[in-house]
Design a protein around this nucleic acid. Structure first.
Lengths: 226, 226
DNA sequence: CGACAGGTTGACCGTTATCAAAGATCGTGG
DNA sequence: CCACGATCTTTGATAACGGTCAACCTGTCG
């Protein structure tokens, strides 16, 4: 673990929290940050760990998942460079409830709790950035909860495809951002159901499966009316 | 709509956001706050409304619910005095995704977006309070999502009863905090299923239904092992 | 007292989980 | 860079879970 040296990298990785700050403030933040690397399969933090850092992903991919009361795993999200995690437990003196696992060679920057809180008090505008980010996450989490509560698996899958399409801005071609096993865990279903429902959607003419991860959407509106 | 006059009420209603501030700062905040009252059934905000206030509940009860993509309603939470809402859209220049409906004679205080952001920049400690609150809500929302994703209805109901018991600290007697219809909506199921599963739990000897809303828990651990 | 919303119960059926087995894909180490 | 093993994916058969519809019951409030 050593301080982050490359400003370019920091600029990338700290989007969207710190990118509105002046260079000198950035330098100050960089001084307080540590970096670390993890190999595929390594756990960055466990549920139950006392949490004391904000982790900002520089390079690689991280899988965030939770275990339910009965021990079943659910994928919460996948982090890409520039995303951060660990923020939840930063503001409550408690422990993580989720697991963070590197799923590729991964490099992260870490800012510990006390340093971050000092930064927040010193540069209140950072707070507003984080609040904004939290708002979005909360809205997203509640939307997701409502979907689970009210939609069946087929609809959840269709909505997920629609969101992929929107995110990737690729007209009518999309690439699944994770394995179907992970997708099943993310959508609260099983890999078998994902397979079958995609086959159904294809049968009905809404999509065409090009390859394992590539899907062409033929009738977005029709698909969403299911 | 008129300024909030009674400091006592403010102190109550602004817990837990502002209660660490000095009296004079409190006075400043009170100057910027407006108050309003709503009758049972009145809507405080609609999904789609441009949101521009933080609402702090003084007196009464508010039902927060969302509509899914396909138009089904889900109860997100019920607010009690001291709780706040409207915070989400405050940090993104967008609109509400949820509905807030008074379910009793209700009195609220409102702080508008620009005033609040000024307060945040002036008193960074408020940000940390709100961040803490957001963290808790986010954790809660993600835990709820995981439950929907991985547990069946019976387990969700059992876990809900366990949480009621914990919240109410009443040893082994609990009172449902909402109608079974609302509970069904909150737990992503139907009133029929709630009825049946409670009857099942009673049959298996885990609970005893005293009256419509009162339940005695006979074997908490057993119930949670379902 | 009657009306109405909420709650319960039964019968039935659609959706999806589960188990099993075969086929495809990926990552790793030689 | 290729080949092998591990993991992921697909498909089929089956069963469980819970949603829906309908009828009836209950309590509440004018």
């Amino acid at each position: 673990m050593h301080a982050c040296h490359q400003h370019e990298k920091m600029c990338v990785s700290l989007v969207p929290i710190f990118n509105h700050l002046e260079t000198e403030q950035m330098a100050e933040i960089m001084k307080t940050a540590k970096s670390g690397t993890f190999k595929r399969g390594e756990i960055i933090y466990h549920a139950g760990d006392k949490s004391d850092s904000l982790y900002i992903l520089n390079k690689g991919k991280i899988r965030i998942y939770r275990l339910s009361e009965s021990g079943k795993e659910q994928l919460v999200r996948i982090l890409h460079p520039g995303d951060f995690t660990g923020e939840l437990a930063l503001f409550k003196e408690e422990t993580h409830e989720s697991y963070a696992e590197a799923i590729a060679m991964t490099q992260i920057c870490m800012i510990n709790r006390t340093d971050l809180q000092e930064l927040l008090l010193k540069y209140p505008s950072i707070s507003i950035k984080i609040l904004t980010e939290f708002s979005n996450r909360l809205e997203e989490a509640e939307r997701q909860t409502t979907r689970f509560a009210t939609e069946k698996a087929e609809t959840r899958i269709a909505v997920f495809l629609a969101e992929c399409l929107e995110d990737q801005g690729q007209f009518n071609m999309l690439e699944l951002p994770m394995s179907k096993k992970d997708l099943a865990s993310y959508l609260g279903t099983t890999p078998e159901t994902i397979s079958r429902k995609l086959a159904d959607l294809q049968h009905k003419g809404y999509i065409r499966q090009i390859s394992n991860k590539k899907i062409e959407v033929l009738d977005l509106d029709g698909m969403l009316l299911i």
